[in-house]
């Protein structure tokens, strides 16, 4: 399905901007997502991810710039939406319809679905489709939208924080579905603020901050931004460790007590572990920072 369009990028945004009253939600956003890529769209709450996606869907009109889905303008929904499927951030369904009715409606008004795959997805996501939507939890409504989106086999999947209501088991299933979609050549545009999820499935990410795209990088480059917190508890004081602060990648060395050491580490932990080798370490903890902390760290270096 996607083969005929591989030469055209799946998504193209040119100087896209959206202003709500006095708030600039998205500013001057230019981005190309080639067909077949799994692209992570990262940013803290309020960064403008949903606004960007709603412009891509034609739900919002850009105040400046333009976007294309394959080669159809985003505003030409009858053409553009033949080639995409969408999972919104907050899935709202008609409360009196059952999950199955929602699915058949969404399938019926589109270009058709893979019914066998849909049934398989219902099993995998453990969704009871005969319940009315008003009985569904946030996660269950999200599952309905995910099943509807994946079963279209559309060449482009636009997913706006699709796992915010899913439990870890279902999130694993979601990642498997993304992998299958990628293997089939589908393009995925995944908005998220969960770094682990993006790390697991995406090959390239864009980082959005206050409506501006501040970084577009491959996954390996993103790791460069990683800064972990290392906490060491010693059985006996070890004055030799004072030299740790000079090691590459180490910053913020603190000694709350002579037996406790805290530091931030960017890059691989090998040198620090070697330096600790001679000491009497009672307890060692390496805490991955949250995405928010990475952002703070990152924005500290790059004022924007």
């Amino acid at each position: 399905m996607a083969t005929s369009t591989t030469s055209v990028p799946a998504l193209r945004m040119e100087r896209l901007g959206k202003r709500f009253g006095t708030t600039d939600a998205v500013v001057d956003l230019s981005l190309i997502v080639p067909a077949g890529e799994v692209f992570g769209f990262l940013g803290p709450n309020g960064a403008g991810k949903s606004t960007t996606i709603r412009m891509l869907l034609g739900l919002l009109l850009p105040t400046s710039g333009a976007a294309w889905v394959f080669d159809a303008p985003a505003g030409d929904v009858e053409r553009a939406h033949e080639m995409l499927a969408y999972v919104p951030a907050d899935v709202a369904l008609w409360p009196a319809l059952t999950g199955r009715e929602c699915l058949s409606l969404l399938a019926g008004v589109g270009p058709g679905i893979d019914a066998a795959y849909r049934d398989e997805l219902l099993e995998r996501f453990a969704l009871d489709p005969d319940r009315k939507a008003r009985t569904y939890s946030t996660g269950n409504r999200q599952k309905v939208a995910l099943v509807a989106a994946f079963s279209t086999r559309a060449p482009l999947l636009v997913l706006d924080e699709p796992t915010s209501g899913l439990d870890p088991l279902m999130e694993r299933e979601f990642r498997a579905c993304i992998a299958e979609a990628a293997a089939r050549g589908q393009t995925v545009f995944l908005s998220s603020h969960q770094l682990a999820e993006v790390e697991a499935v995406c090959s390239r990410v864009g980082i959005l901050r206050s409506g501006r795209l501040v970084e577009v990088a491959g996954m390996a480059d993103l790791r460069r931004l990683h800064r972990s917190e290392v906490i060491v508890e010693l059985a006996a004081p070890e004055p030799g460790l004072r030299g740790l602060a000079d090691l590459p990648g180490v910053a913020d060395v603190r000694w709350p007590s002579p037996l406790r050491l805290e530091l931030s580490l960017t890059g691989p932990p090998g040198t620090v572990l070697r330096a600790l080798g001679g000491a009497d370490v009672a307890h060692l903890e390496v805490r991955e920072p949250s995405l928010e902390e990475i952002f703070l760290d990152y924005y500290g270096q790059v004022p924007a």
Partner: peptide, 19 residues
């Protein structure tokens, strides 16, 4: 329905608002 967000999924299909 629009205010409650119930039309977002419908309009993500090839359905124009005018139609």
């Amino acid at each position: 329905d629009e205010t409650a967000g119930r039309l977002a999924l419908l309009y993500s299909r090839p359905v124009s608002r005018a139609r």
